[in-house]
Amino acid sequence: MLEEIKSLRKAPEEEYYVPGHRTCAGCGPALQYRLVAKAAGPNTIFLGPTGCMYVANTSYGCGPWAVPWIHAQITNGGAVASGIEAAYKAMIRKHKTDAEFPNIIVMAGDGGSADIGLQALSAAFYRGHNILFIAYDNESYANTGIQTSPTTPYGAWTTFSPAGPVIPEGKKLMPKDLPKMMAHGHPELKYLATASLAYPLDLMNKVRRGLNAQGPSFLYVHAPCPKGWSFPADKTVEMGKLAVETGMFQLYELNEGQYKLTYQPKEIKPVEEYIKLQGRFSHLQPEHIQKLQQFANGRLKEVGIEVSVPAQ
């Protein structure tokens, strides 16, 4: 059983995601990876389906993990994790190993979870394997040069949704809501939560609760990407905070079917404060910003936060 971390001083000092990786300066996904590894501890196996956190971390013949790590294709993070879990269970049952059952963590991007990797993720959760699946959401396919993914928000510029005279808003579709999809279709699900790297204690505790749940657990982590979203590298944490404070991202958990809001901002700010700092939204006209405000208000209502910024 992993204990609750009460304060930053009580957080483990040891690093299992060590310095020396090729991620960009100020990388949000790298920061959340470090926090996840810290919370999970030494008895952990990481799986890296293709994505930034595979490509940018593995350089020729080396990687930054002090714990075992294995690559999986972008389609099959859930399937490889199921195999590792089943093999450990069988070997422990047949006394072929004296190893303790490890924390099996899949670190998939939004492409490896909400898009290309969705079937393997859903199948693993349907079968009820004891794994923690983390989807770090940087809202694009970033390692191949910022292409649109299903979680890219409305109005964002990507190389596949450029803003121009015909489509002035860039991306036309509203993003997919992966945590709600996972929450309502998988009877074996034990724990589900959303977290943000701007709230490190909350994130680490949710990782621990997920690992303690002894069943399929899903964690959805908001991870701002300075390169893909076009903002300065030092604003990563601020961007994560603003996303929560403007209602573009909501922090909640679902523990054994019990829904709980884990963080409620004191005052909801207009989404404009969040998007004006990002180059990917720089082309938006007022009517597009209103559409994004409507989107944020809708999500806030769904999770039970009072909407205080009206959309026209």
């Binding site: 060590v18 310095p19 020396g20 990786h21 080396c62 990687g63 930054p64 790590w69």
Partner: peptide, 8 residues
């Protein structure tokens, strides 16, 4: 696996 830093 590296222990404390990845010198690669």
């Amino acid at each position: 696996s590296p222990k404390t830093e990845n010198e690669g």
